[in-house]
Design a protein around this nucleic acid. Sequence first.
DNA 1: GGAAAACTGTACTCGCGGTACGGATTGTTG
DNA 2: CAACAATCCGTACCGCGAGTACAGTTTTCC
Lengths: 206, 206
Amino acid sequence: MGKGEATRERILEVAEAAVLAKGFGATSIEEVIAEAGLTKSGFFYHFRDKNALAREMLRRYVDTNDRLFDDIFARGRQLSDDPLQAFLISLKLLAEVMADLPNGHPGCLIASICYQERLFDREVRDLTAQSVRDWNARFRGIFDGIAAVYPPKEAVDLDDLADMLSCIVDGAIILSKTLNDPRRLERQILIFRSCVKLMFSGPTLS
Amino acid sequence: MGKGEATRERILEVAEAAVLAKGFGATSIEEVIAEAGLTKSGFFYHFRDKNALAREMLRRYVDTNDRLFDDIFARGRQLSDDPLQAFLISLKLLAEVMADLPNGHPGCLIASICYQERLFDREVRDLTAQSVRDWNARFRGIFDGIAAVYPPKEAVDLDDLADMLSCIVDGAIILSKTLNDPRRLERQILIFRSCVKLMFSGPTLS
DNA sequence: GGAAAACTGTACTCGCGGTACGGATTGTTG
DNA sequence: CAACAATCCGTACCGCGAGTACAGTTTTCC
C-alpha cells in the first residue's frame, strides 16, 4: 500500500464517522482534513469533490458489509446442515455482532444517502440501489433454500421476506439512534428471527 | 386563523417537501422563501433560525401522523370487534393509504432528522424520541388487547413487536426510496401483517 | 384611526465548497 | 545519483447560503 492510498483510507475513515454522526451535508471538508491531519489541497488531490468522497465511502461501506455477511452466513452453514437452522443461527450471530458494537451501530450509509439524494450524482445513487439489490438477492437465495425443505406457511412472497430483513435492520438502526438505545437493534433482529421460524417451521395454517 | 399563521403554514409545507426530497442540510432557506413567496426578512420574522423551522416541521409532521393513525385504527375497531381482526384490517388500510400516495411516501421526517442529529438542538431530538415512544406505546396497547384474547406463540416480547412496526415502515420507506419502487412499502406492511397473524392466530408451537 | 402584526429592503458578516496555481517533499526507477 | 512522478503544502481567491441588524412599509384588527 502506497502512502497515498493510506492517506485516502484515513480520510475515508474520518469522513465515514462524521457523516454517520451528522449527515453528509453537515460534514465539512475542513473538519475532516483537520481530523485526518492534512490540508485542503491534499484532500482535493485525492478526491475531485464531495461527490467523489461519497462514492468511495460507499464502496468501502458496501465492501465491509459484504465481508461481514459472508462471514456470518458462512459460519451459519458451517454450524448446521439444515438451511433453516443455519439461517436462524446466522441471525443470532448477526444480532450478537450488532449488540457488541460499543456505541451502538454507527448508522447505515445507504439510509444516510437516501435522505440526501439530491446532493449526489447518478453514479452514487445507482451504487446504493445496486448494493441493496445484491443484499436482497443474497437473502432471497437463502430463503429459496429454506423453502425447498420447509414449505412456507401462508402465501409469503420470498422476495418480500428478503426485503424485510433489510427493512428491519435499517429501521432498527433509526429506532436505536433516535431513542439512544443500542439494544433495540439486537432485539429487532431476534424478533425477525422469530417470524422466520414461525413462517417455516410451524404447522400449516388454514 | 391570522395571516401570519397562514404564512407559517405555507413555509412549513414548502420546507417539509424540500427536506424530505433533499435532506435538511441541502435545503436552503432561500429556495424555500422563493417557493413560498416571501423575503428573507419575512422568514426570520416567523422562525428564529433553521432549528426553529425544524422544530415546527416536526410538530406538524407528528400531528399529521397521529391523526392518520387515529383514523386508521379507529376504523379497524369499527369494522371488527375482535382486537386481532381489527388490527389486521387496520394494517391493510395502512398499506392501502401508503400505496395510494402518488409519488411514493415522501419520507419519514424522524429518519431524516435522525441522520442529521448534530444539526439540531436538544429540544428537536427530544421531540423525535418522544413521538416515537408515543407511537410504539400506542401499538403496544393494541397488542396487549390482542394478547388478552389470543395467547401469542413463542416468547414474543410485545414491546419489540410494537417497535417492529415502526422499524418496518421506516426501513421500507428507505428501501422504496433507494430502489425507486413505491410499492415496496405496501408489501412490507402486508408481510408484517402476515407475521402478526402467524404469531397470534396460528396453533401453538412446541 | 391607531397600535400591533406582518412583512420588505438593504447591507453586511462568516463559514464552507471549490478553484487555481506555484512550490516543496517524498518515493521510485533507470 | 539523477530525474521524474506522486504526494502534499500555502495562499489567495470566488460564490453561495445562513444569519444579523435595522429602518421603513404595509396589513390586519380592535
